[in-house]
Nucleic acid binder design. Structure first.
Lengths: 124, 124
DNA sequence: TGTCGAATTCGATGTTTGTCGAAACCAAGG
DNA sequence: CCTTGGTTTCGACAAACATCGAATTCGACA
């Protein structure tokens, strides 16, 4: 399950390196954009944005898929597909324990995305 | 040009209201996800992410389309299409002055997105 | 070992997206 | 007024996506 194969390029960036200055401070290099865009894309769906929030805000830092699925009017496979998308974007990690699978957020990349969007308070 | 029609729901959110607590702090309501996801989606393409950065980091706070287009190996219509996507997501504003069109970032919504992704430093 | 339940993978389908060239629009200057 | 250059809109098309039901995998536990 931990095989959940984050793309090689992404693994580098999920490290706790401060990385990239804010998007509004200096022009993003093409490679950086190519690597980070998929993370934004993954958050660009209402269902996945909610899933991400449910996972990231979960008490204990993790959530069982069995708690995520019933929160939506969607089939199990569809939720599983969205979770895979979040996984491949490097936003979450999955771990199987017994019959259940638990998801947790990857704070490093979330911080990275937040940092990228950060705007100098001086800027109107 | 200012007609560039941000969806009505979005205009509310582009206000400077602090809005929404971080995604990792409390579960995002479905409506909030529905309203904000399109903004992330718009940033979820490498070309648009670069465009956004070029616009947001521009000296003087604005950039001419004529400076954006030649920075990519893409046709004019394609760049224009991406700019429209950013506009409709409420991320940028366009203004025509003479023959040229200038784009500027909308800091409020960027701050909002950044805030949503913000992670409590205490969280590992 | 056989079955049950949880989750993922597979295959199919209708929709959305990124891209282009052609055409239209619009302001500036001859 | 007519042309020219910058930008957007239109129409088309292949690739990617969201969704589902069916089939599969994987532990747990009789």
């Amino acid at each position: 399950m931990s095989k959940s194969a984050v793309s090689p390029a992404l693994t580098d960036l999920t490290a706790d390196t401060p990385c990239c200055p804010p998007l509004a401070q200096s022009r993003i290099p093409a490679e950086t954009a190519t690597v980070l865009a998929p993370a934004f894309k993954a958050l660009g769906d209402p269902v996945r944005l909610q899933l991400m929030s449910m996972i990231a805000s979960a008490a204990g830092g993790e959530v069982c898929v069995c708690d995520l699925t019933p929160a939506f009017d969607l089939s199990g496979p569809t939720i599983s597909h969205h979770l895979k998308t979040l996984r491949e974007a490097g936003l979450v990690d999955a771990e199987r324990r017994g019959s259940w699978v638990y998801y947790r957020a990857r704070p490093a990349i979330l911080r990275q995305l937040a940092g990228l969007l950060t705007i100098d308070p001086a800027a109107v």
